[in-house]
Deep mutational scan, measured.
Amino acid sequence: QEELVKAFKALLKEEKFSSQGEIVAALQEQGFDNINQSKVSRMLTKFGAVRTRNAKMEMVYCLPAELGV
């Protein structure tokens, strides 16, 4: 569980995922086979993730800066 949270936060820091499906796929690539869209959705809510525009003006998920991840 701890490893999943770390990987999840690291992915969001990249600010390149525009959908929950993309986050699920990226986590599965890292070996988290039991991850699915509903789990990702709950984690996004739990950590207060928001959708914002990145440098390329794409809408992407990211974590609020005050979490200091």
Rank of each mutant, 00 (worst) to 15 (best):
Q1C: 15
Q1V: 11
E2T: 11
E2K: 10
E3K: 13
L4W: 05
V5M: 12
V5W: 09
V5Y: 15
V5H: 14
K6E: 13
K6P: 04
A7S: 07
F8D: 00
K9R: 10
K9C: 13
K9L: 15
A10I: 08
L11Y: 03
L11E: 00
L12F: 04
L12M: 06
L12I: 06
K13E: 08
K13Q: 11
K13S: 10
E14V: 06
E14T: 12
E14I: 06
E14Q: 14
E15V: 06
F17H: 07
F17T: 03
S18K: 15
S19W: 06
S19M: 06
S19L: 06
Q20S: 12
Q20W: 06
G21S: 13
G21N: 13
G21H: 12
G21M: 15
E22G: 08
E22N: 05
E22C: 04
V24G: 02
V24Y: 05
A25N: 09
A25G: 06
L27F: 01
L27G: 00
L27A: 00
Q30A: 11
D33M: 14
D33S: 14
I35H: 01
N36Y: 05
Q37D: 11
Q37E: 14
Q37S: 10
Q37T: 12
Q37L: 13
Q37H: 12
S38K: 13
S38L: 11
K39D: 15
K39H: 15
V40P: 00
S41I: 08
S41R: 13
S41P: 00
R42G: 11
M43V: 01
M43F: 05
M43A: 01
L44C: 02
T45L: 12
T45H: 14
K46C: 09
K46G: 08
K46H: 14
F47V: 12
F47E: 06
G48A: 05
A49H: 02
V50K: 09
R51G: 04
R51W: 08
T52N: 08
T52D: 05
R53L: 15
R53P: 09
N54A: 02
A55D: 11
A55G: 09
A55E: 12
M57I: 03
M57W: 08
M57D: 15
E58L: 07
M59K: 05
M59Q: 06
M59D: 07
V60H: 03
Y61Q: 02
L63K: 02
L63I: 09
L63R: 02
L63Q: 03
L63D: 03
P64C: 11
A65D: 15
A65L: 11
L67C: 12
L67I: 14
G68T: 09
V69Y: 04
V69N: 14
